[in-house]
Amino acid sequence: MQADLIEDVLCGPAQMFGGSRLGDEELIQLACEEFKGQSFCIVRNWMMLDLLLSDTQEREVRKQGLQPTVLFINHAVFDNEARVQTGDGFITGYQKDFHGCFFESEDALYILAGRGARKHVSLPAFQALSAYANVGITA
C-alpha cells in the first residue's frame, strides 16, 4: 500500500512549473549577492506538494501564518549554510511564501531552478513519502 502511495506522488500526474533558467554557478553567485545574511538553498528536480489536511490540521498550519504546502526536493545544488549536501534530497517545512522561483519555508528560502511540478497529496501519501525519504517532517 505505501509503495502505491509513493509511486502516485512521484510518478502520477502533476502540474508542470518552471523555475529559474540560470545555470547553477550563475544562480549561486547571484543568490550569494542578493540574499547575503539569509539562509537559502538552490534546488533542482523539485515538486511542491499541497497537502490535503483535515480542517483542524489546516487551521493549525494557517494559524502559524503558513500554508499547507511543502517542497519535495530531489537534488540540492547549493546550501549557503551547509545544512544539506550537494545532491541530497529532502522535504521542507510548510510554506511561508511563494513567488516566482522562490519558495520560503519557516527556516529558509529555496530558489527553484529548472523544471518542477506541483500536485495535491493526501496526508497518508505524504507520510509514506516522508518515511521513504527518511525525513522528520510530519503534518
Rank of each mutant, 00 (worst) to 15 (best):
residue 26 E to Y: 02
residue 4 D to M: 09
residue 26 E to S: 02
residue 73 I to Q: 08
residue 42 I to S: 03
residue 87 G to N: 12
residue 114 G to R: 12
residue 6 I to P: 00
residue 55 D to W: 04
residue 19 G to K: 07
residue 24 D to K: 13
residue 134 N to Q: 13
residue 70 V to F: 12
residue 127 Q to A: 10
residue 34 E to S: 15
residue 133 A to N: 07
residue 46 W to H: 07
residue 107 D to M: 10
residue 32 C to K: 10
residue 34 E to P: 02
residue 81 E to T: 13
residue 77 V to C: 09
residue 45 N to H: 14
residue 36 K to F: 06
residue 139 A to H: 06
residue 30 L to C: 08
residue 33 E to S: 10
residue 63 K to V: 03
residue 111 I to D: 09
residue 63 K to H: 10
residue 26 E to I: 02
residue 35 F to C: 08
residue 110 Y to D: 12
residue 84 V to Q: 09
residue 55 D to K: 09
residue 86 T to F: 08
residue 62 R to I: 11
residue 7 E to P: 03
residue 37 G to C: 03
residue 137 I to V: 05
residue 80 N to R: 01
residue 32 C to P: 01
residue 129 L to T: 07
residue 33 E to W: 05
residue 78 F to Y: 15
residue 118 R to T: 11
residue 7 E to C: 05
residue 2 Q to I: 02
residue 123 L to V: 15
residue 139 A to I: 02
residue 47 M to P: 06
residue 72 F to R: 10
residue 136 G to M: 08
residue 32 C to V: 03
residue 13 P to K: 11
residue 101 C to D: 14
residue 119 K to R: 15
residue 21 R to T: 11
residue 101 C to T: 08
residue 41 C to Y: 02
residue 54 S to N: 00
residue 69 T to N: 02
residue 122 S to P: 03
residue 43 V to R: 15
residue 130 S to V: 07
residue 12 G to N: 06
residue 60 E to I: 00
residue 77 V to W: 04
residue 110 Y to C: 00
residue 4 D to T: 12
residue 6 I to Q: 08
residue 118 R to A: 13
residue 123 L to P: 04
residue 1 M to L: 04
residue 58 E to I: 01
residue 5 L to G: 08
residue 42 I to Q: 02
residue 126 F to D: 02
residue 46 W to M: 10
residue 71 L to I: 10
residue 53 L to R: 00
residue 90 F to T: 05
residue 6 I to A: 00
residue 76 A to Y: 01
residue 64 Q to C: 10
residue 74 N to V: 04
residue 44 R to A: 14
residue 132 Y to E: 07
residue 77 V to H: 11
residue 94 Y to P: 05
residue 93 G to Y: 02
residue 85 Q to F: 01
residue 10 L to Y: 07
residue 34 E to H: 11
residue 31 A to M: 07
residue 87 G to S: 14
residue 52 L to M: 13
residue 103 F to W: 01
residue 121 V to D: 12
residue 118 R to I: 13
residue 75 H to G: 02
residue 75 H to T: 09
residue 73 I to Y: 03
residue 6 I to L: 02
residue 97 D to L: 14
residue 49 L to D: 13
residue 110 Y to W: 12
residue 135 V to F: 12
residue 127 Q to E: 14
residue 66 L to F: 07
residue 45 N to W: 06
residue 73 I to D: 13
residue 81 E to K: 10
residue 112 L to E: 04
residue 72 F to W: 06
residue 97 D to S: 15
residue 10 L to P: 04
residue 64 Q to H: 09
residue 3 A to M: 11
residue 26 E to F: 02
residue 41 C to Q: 11
residue 91 I to C: 05
residue 78 F to A: 03
residue 138 T to I: 07
residue 117 A to G: 10
residue 118 R to V: 11
residue 13 P to Q: 14
residue 139 A to Q: 00
residue 37 G to D: 09
residue 63 K to Y: 05
residue 46 W to N: 13
residue 77 V to I: 15
residue 1 M to G: 15
residue 16 M to T: 14
